Computed example of a mutant assay.
Amino acid sequence: MRFVVYGAGAVGGAIGARLFQRGHDVTLIARGAHYEAIRDRGLRLDTPEESVTLPIPVVDRPSAVTFRPGDVVLLTMKTQDTLAALAELSALAPPDVIVASAQNGVENERLALRLFRRVYGICVLLPSAFLEPGVVEAYLAPQTGGLDVGRYPDGVDDTAEALAEAFTDATFVSVARPDVMRYKYGKLLTNLGNAVEVVIGPGEQGAEIIRLARDEGTACLRASGIDAPSGVGMASQIRPIRGRLRTGGSSHQSLSRGTGTIEADYLNGEIVLLGREHGVPTPVNELLRRLANRMAREGLPPGLMTPEEFLTALDGSAPG
């Protein structure tokens, strides 16, 4: 089983590095300066317990991979990039290649299943960061994170069990779950705070707005008949790396790196979609979605508003 990590940023880089450390066959697909740094110097993984540079094979596009039977493609890009990535992959990879989504949100598996028969969902609990080419950081130890896995739309088979075994060997907590998408919906509720870190800034100042966004999300899942577990997370606490704590989640990092796009349409926007389908108002998530997208387009730094300014804007906004 070879792991082709498609989108080797924070999450993909950390997963690929840990698998490679444990002797698994890994190829990374990265791009730009990140690809060049890994190609020339290897991928550096920084954790609370070690800093190690690994000579992981890396390419800059799927067409540079010679796909073979048994390959597992781990999708680890942001959801807004998934459709284009899958289109490129489907032109090259065999139709029975294993595609596993180690991504936030709940849309990626559905997109993949249109093109590939063997699709798996992975519920990712992996506080990590990618802010410098060639370097990824993972903030949990001794377990690097959680990677529960199951077949999409549901079920467990030999492949799911093999993936869980490989992830466990690579210092992740991993369980093969027949209902893994329930857990991904539970993780979605947690990720509704990503846009708050962007609009308000990280820290406790946005706690009330996060609560409001998650209350809307819980109401939408209930109306949709989705029985998602609450409080999806890990018991381990985030630990500092070289005395420095992780400053923000994946959306905050996207804004800090100036990528020009953000994942809010598939996190807060998923709740807005469910709300519109089932008649549940979602004004908080709609405003967060719109503001986060505007900030990404305009290249604005995190911290556009104070909580009070957001609530004032919310009072004047149209229903979601």
Rank of each mutant, 00 (worst) to 15 (best):
88 E>T: 07
80 Q>A: 07
57 P>A: 08
69 P>D: 14
66 T>M: 04
47 T>C: 10
43 L>V: 04
31 R>G: 14
104 N>P: 15
131 L>H: 03
93 A>F: 01
74 L>E: 08
56 I>W: 04
110 R>P: 02
8 A>Q: 07
73 V>W: 07
120 Y>R: 03
33 A>Y: 03
51 S>Q: 14
102 A>M: 11
27 T>L: 14
25 D>H: 13
107 E>T: 12
104 N>Q: 09
118 R>V: 01
18 R>S: 08
108 N>S: 13
15 I>F: 04
40 D>L: 13
96 D>P: 04
68 R>T: 09
58 V>C: 11
62 P>C: 05
64 A>F: 03
69 P>T: 08
81 D>R: 13
82 T>W: 02
111 L>Q: 15
35 Y>E: 11
9 G>K: 05
19 L>M: 14
91 A>F: 02
37 A>N: 13
12 G>L: 00
37 A>H: 12
64 A>E: 15
48 P>E: 07
119 V>F: 02
80 Q>H: 10
123 C>M: 10
89 L>G: 02
117 R>Q: 06
115 L>E: 12
13 G>M: 09
64 A>G: 04
107 E>F: 07
91 A>D: 14
120 Y>D: 06
90 S>F: 09
65 V>Y: 05
115 L>P: 06
39 R>T: 08
30 A>T: 09
24 H>L: 15
63 S>E: 15
17 A>Y: 07
39 R>V: 11
23 G>Y: 01
125 L>Q: 08
17 A>P: 01
130 F>G: 01
120 Y>C: 05
44 R>I: 00
83 L>D: 15
114 R>L: 02
126 L>Y: 06
35 Y>N: 00
70 G>V: 06
59 V>Y: 08
82 T>P: 03
129 A>Y: 00
114 R>D: 14
104 N>R: 06
98 I>F: 04
54 L>C: 10
54 L>F: 13
14 A>G: 02
86 L>D: 09
99 V>E: 10
78 K>S: 08
32 G>N: 14
94 P>Y: 01
66 T>L: 06
17 A>V: 07
77 M>S: 03
100 A>Y: 01
51 S>W: 10
57 P>R: 07
104 N>K: 09
73 V>I: 12
60 D>T: 05
111 L>E: 13
35 Y>R: 06
101 S>M: 08
60 D>K: 08
97 V>H: 08
27 T>G: 02
85 A>V: 04
31 R>K: 15
44 R>P: 03
94 P>G: 05
55 P>V: 03
114 R>Q: 12
45 L>N: 06
14 A>K: 02
93 A>T: 13
66 T>D: 14
12 G>A: 01
110 R>C: 05
17 A>L: 05
130 F>A: 12
73 V>K: 03
46 D>Y: 14
52 V>H: 12
113 L>A: 13
115 L>M: 07
54 L>I: 05
26 V>E: 03
15 I>A: 04
107 E>G: 09
70 G>H: 05
118 R>M: 02
31 R>M: 11
72 V>L: 09
10 A>V: 14
26 V>Q: 00
110 R>V: 14
116 F>R: 03
87 A>I: 12
61 R>C: 15
105 G>Y: 00
12 G>V: 01
74 L>K: 09
